[in-house]
C-alpha cells in the first residue's frame, strides 16, 4: 500500500492506505478525527464536509491519492478553542437536536462565509442546501449562520 503525507489541521501526518480510500475513512479510522461524519458516501448529504485549502469539500468522495500539498481542515481544527464565530453562534442559537450533521453544517458555513461575509438569507439558504439535517433544525442553522456573519464583520 502506498504511503501518504498530508497536512491535516496544521500537522503533517503519515499513513499508508489504498489509493482509492476516501479521505473520510482515513480521518475517521486511521487518524481518529471522528468529528467528520459518514452519512451517505456519495456526496449528497454533507455530513463529511471538510476544508481543502479552505474550500468546503465532501471527504467521502475525495480519494487520498489525488491529495498532495493541500491544507486539510476538519471540525477538530476549525479553531483551537472551539470558539470559531460559527461554533459560538451554533451555541448561542442552540442549534443541534441529535447533532450528528452539525460538524458538516459548520464546515460548509465556514467556507461559505469566507466567500460571502455578508450574505442575505436567500444566499444562506442556497449555500447550505447541500447539507441535510434529518432532525430539520434548518431554521436555527439559518439563524446561526447569520449570527456568525454578524460576529465576523
Amino acid at each position: 500500500m502506498p504511503t501518504y503525507n498530508l497536512k491535516i489541521n496544521g500537522e503533517l501526518v503519515t499513513f499508508t492506505a489504498d489509493s482509492d480510500t476516501p479521505l473520510l475513512w482515513i480521518l475517521r479510522d486511521e487518524l481518529n478525527l471522528v468529528g467528520t461524519k459518514f452519512g451517505c458516501g456519495i456526496a449528497q448529504c454533507g455530513a463529511c464536509t471538510v476544508h481543502v485549502d479552505g474550500v468546503a469539500t465532501r471527504s467521502c468522495q475525495l480519494q487520498v491519492s489525488i491529495l498532495d500539498k493541500e491544507e486539510i481542515t476538519t471540525i477538530e481544527g476549525l479553531s483551537k478553542e472551539g470558539d470559531h464565530p460559527l461554533q459560538e453562534a451554533w451555541k448561542e442559537v442552540d442549534v443541534p437536536q441529535c447533532g450528528y450533521c452539525q460538524a458538516g453544517q459548520i464546515m460548509t458555513a465556514a467556507s461559505f462565509l469566507k466567500e460571502n461575509p455578508n450574505p442575505t438569507s436567500t444566499e444562506i439558504r442556497e449555500a447550505m442546501h447541500g447539507n441535510i439535517c434529518r432532525c430539520a433544525s434548518y431554521n436555527r442553522i439559518e439563524k446561526a449562520v447569520a449570527v456568525a456573519a454578524k460576529k465576523m464583520s
Binding site: G35, W90, D94, P96, G99, A103
Partner: peptide
C-alpha cells in the same frame, strides 16, 4: 427558562459522541 443543550460544546467541536465514533482495541469492521 432557556437552557442550552448540555452537549453543545462536544457537538460543535466534533468530539466522539456517537456509536459510529466508538473504537476499541483490536476492533475490526
Amino acid at each position: 427558562k432557556d437552557a442550552l443543550n448540555v452537549d453543545l460544546d462536544n457537538i460543535v467541536t466534533g468530539k466522539p459522541l456517537f456509536g459510529l465514533d466508538y473504537k476499541a482495541d483490536g476492533m475490526v469492521y
